[in-house]
Amino acid sequence: MTDDTSRSTTTSGLRTTVETYWATADARDWEAFAATLADDVVYELPQTRERIRGKDRYLRFNQEYPGDWHVRIERIVADAEGRQAAARTEFTVGPEELHAIHFFTFDDRGLITGVTDFWPEAYEPPAGREHLVERY
């Protein structure tokens, strides 16, 4: 992502931020991943009714997520005027493949302020992350 604010909030800049977000998550490069996020980022999982507020908690959530998962971006659509983007991804966890849709919002610097993940089916969250999330 660039330091030039005018470029980071363009449609291309928002797409690049989402690409960087996923590439750094997949590489477990948590410093670079955190650099895509606003301090007050909010992450939501409607299927499990979970919400995480703040960069530190969201970063820790990702660092502690279990399993050897990998992600591949299938498509990104971005709208600079609305400061939003959507991505469709494929996750692999061992032999299992999961598809998900993710909605992103951005601040005026092009940092991610919100992420909402939609997975194919509702599920109960795995144990061990209660200290990071609030249920709704």
Rank of each mutant, 00 (worst) to 15 (best):
E19P: 13
E124V: 05
E50A: 02
T5G: 03
R51Q: 08
R129F: 09
D117I: 00
L132W: 07
E19H: 11
T48W: 06
P66I: 06
L111N: 14
R135A: 11
E44R: 06
Y136W: 08
T9Q: 02
T16A: 06
T16M: 01
R49H: 07
K55V: 10
E31I: 09
F103T: 15
A27V: 13
R53C: 12
S6T: 13
W30S: 01
R28Q: 14
E74G: 15
A80E: 15
I101F: 14
E50Q: 04
F103V: 15
A32C: 05
S12L: 08
W30K: 00
V77W: 09
A34R: 11
S6G: 02
R7M: 02
R60W: 04
A100F: 07
H102W: 13
T9I: 05
A35S: 13
T113I: 05
T10E: 06
T89P: 04
R53Q: 11
I112W: 02
V133F: 02
T48Y: 00
D68C: 05
A25T: 14
E90A: 09
A80S: 15
A78L: 12
G94H: 03
D79K: 10
I76S: 13
T105Y: 11
Y65Q: 13
A80D: 15
T5D: 10
A38N: 11
Y65N: 14
D40E: 13
I52L: 04
V133T: 05
G114T: 11
R15E: 09
R49K: 12
V133I: 11
R135T: 11
E50I: 01
D68R: 05
T2I: 06
T92E: 09
R57K: 06
T20V: 11
G82A: 11
E96I: 07
P120V: 03
S12D: 11
G54A: 10
A35R: 07
E74F: 10
N62S: 05
F103C: 14
R83E: 13
R83A: 11
D68M: 03
E96Y: 00
H70W: 07
R15I: 04
A127I: 02
E50L: 04
T24W: 00
R53W: 06
E130I: 06
D117W: 00
D39A: 03
I101W: 13
T5S: 06
M1A: 12
E96R: 04
E90P: 00
W22E: 13
P120S: 04
T17E: 12
E44A: 08
I52K: 01
